[in-house]
Computed example of a mutant assay.
Amino acid sequence: MNSRIPGACDVKAWTEVSMDYVAFDSARREAVRGWWRAFTDPEELAAAVDRLQDQAAAIDDEVDRARAYRYLKTLDDLVSEARAPECEPVRRAEDVLLGASRLDGTSAGQG
Score class of each variant (00 low, 15 high):
F24Y: 15
G109N: 08
E88K: 14
V90K: 14
V22W: 12
W14I: 10
E86R: 14
S101E: 10
A66L: 09
R4C: 01
A31P: 01
R51D: 15
V63W: 08
A23M: 13
R29K: 11
V63C: 03
T40C: 11
A8D: 01
V22T: 13
D104E: 07
L45E: 02
L103D: 04
T106N: 03
W14S: 02
V49A: 05
V79M: 03
E62H: 05
S3C: 02
A108N: 05
T15Y: 10
E88V: 13
D76Y: 13
G99Y: 08
A48Q: 01
T74Y: 06
D76T: 11
R83N: 07
G99N: 13
A82H: 05
D60K: 14
K12D: 01
D10P: 00
E44S: 14
S80N: 06
A38F: 10
S101I: 01
N2W: 02
R102A: 06
C9K: 11
A93P: 06
D64Y: 15
G99M: 05
Q110T: 06
A27C: 11
E30F: 08
D61H: 14
G34M: 06
D64G: 05
V90H: 13
A31N: 07
V11L: 08
P42V: 03
A93R: 11
R65G: 00
A23N: 14
A56F: 09
R51F: 07
W14R: 05
V32I: 13
F24V: 07
E94K: 12
I5M: 03
A100T: 09
P89A: 05
Y69I: 01
A8T: 04
L45K: 03
R70A: 06
Q110M: 08
G99T: 10
V17C: 06
S18D: 07
T40M: 06
V17F: 06
G105H: 04
A100D: 10
D25Q: 12
Q55M: 15
P85V: 04
G111K: 11
R4L: 03
S3I: 00
A31M: 09
L78H: 05
W35K: 03
L78Y: 04
S80H: 08
L98P: 02
V49I: 12
Q55P: 04
K73I: 02
D64L: 14
A46Y: 02
I59D: 00
E43N: 14
A31K: 03
S18C: 06
S3K: 01
V79I: 07
D60R: 15
G7H: 00
M19I: 05
S107Q: 10
F39G: 11
R67Y: 00
A66D: 08
V32R: 09
E88R: 15
